[in-house]
Design a binder for these strands. Sequence first.
DNA 1: GTCTATAGTAAGATAGAC
DNA 2: GTCTATCTTACTATAGAC
Lengths: 208, 208
Amino acid sequence: MRLRDRVSAVQPSTTSTRSGGRAQETRATLLAAARDVFAESGFAQANIADVVARAGASVGSLYHHFGGKADLYLALFEDYQTRQEARAAAAVREARTSGVTDPVDLFLAGAAAYLRGCWEERGLARLFLAGGGPTGFELIARRRYREWTRVNATLLRADDQPLGDTLVLVLTSVVAEAGSEVAVQDNESDAFRLADEVLELISRISHP
Amino acid sequence: MRLRDRVSAVQPSTTSTRSGGRAQETRATLLAAARDVFAESGFAQANIADVVARAGASVGSLYHHFGGKADLYLALFEDYQTRQEARAAAAVREARTSGVTDPVDLFLAGAAAYLRGCWEERGLARLFLAGGGPTGFELIARRRYREWTRVNATLLRADDQPLGDTLVLVLTSVVAEAGSEVAVQDNESDAFRLADEVLELISRISHP
DNA sequence: GTCTATAGTAAGATAGAC
DNA sequence: GTCTATCTTACTATAGAC
């Protein structure tokens, strides 16, 4: 209920008199189909026709909701990133509430949540990992990555003995790379074991 | 002389009676043009016409030498990888000759050479880093990456106290990520400073 | 808001002369 | 081996009915 209201606030249901979100449903179906098709063929190979076919919708409908193929991909990425950031932020908040104060431990809590998200949404993770989005996508992704590094830097600097810039960069990149590896694992236990080992390693590296 | 002979051995000059490698020259020009065009626009956006225009060659000539657009990209990647591997192998060999025996130090020597290569060939490095090659390319790249990790594992295990699998994976990924960062730097001094800091960090992490 | 049908275009690949 | 000209295909995006 409240969730749908929030979504409506972001994406107003335009002029439809009182429809209970039929358009929203179409939009969501389109996004889900796009996720599958893009994940299967990559952005360049994938075509609009396959997306609408899988969604059981029409080309016109897609162009009504999105500007086109590139917009569809971008919307997918934005949603994914938002969810990942929410996961990490929630985990850090929770750790704080539980009395964790050490910056590295807070960072690890966020990283663990991020890696769990990489496994749960491995379809999307693999897609973006594979690269080859629309023109200009790399810039957007890189911007997001820089932002993430900056947030981590802030988190890891809230200390008497702040960590160096290069170490922050390395830690962030290790988590990112671990996310990629997690997303391509074949089964959950392998994925989680890998994630745990990497987190353990980071802990050893960072705690003098 | 000897170099050209070796190239001819790999890519026989077919039926040309005694031409001094005019075809090889065309092939090389085509490859150089492809490098620039792909680097500028990415694989999907780039088109054959731009490549041949820049090379001052013709479409027919391109199709004579390569199977098509995808083959061109793949040839570029193979050449690049071969050069990077040669750089790393030479550096490790040289270090060995100089009396270095510690596996981690040998690994670092190879990594340093690799990072130098990333800077020198940053055009190509950025291209492959950006992703979005032809269908199936990701698999090829991943295979190469696995192979590299395996080689590093062999190198790093030649010791009384071999390093763990996860640590080897992390070290390899850190070098790879450092390569990406090096390749996108704006100037050489920033690039080299970053490379040195990462290598220093790896050394500290690995030497107990 | 959703649909079908179609326009428009771009680009990869080929044929055949030189 | 290299060229020009052309063919063919595939797909994005739009127009307009319902």
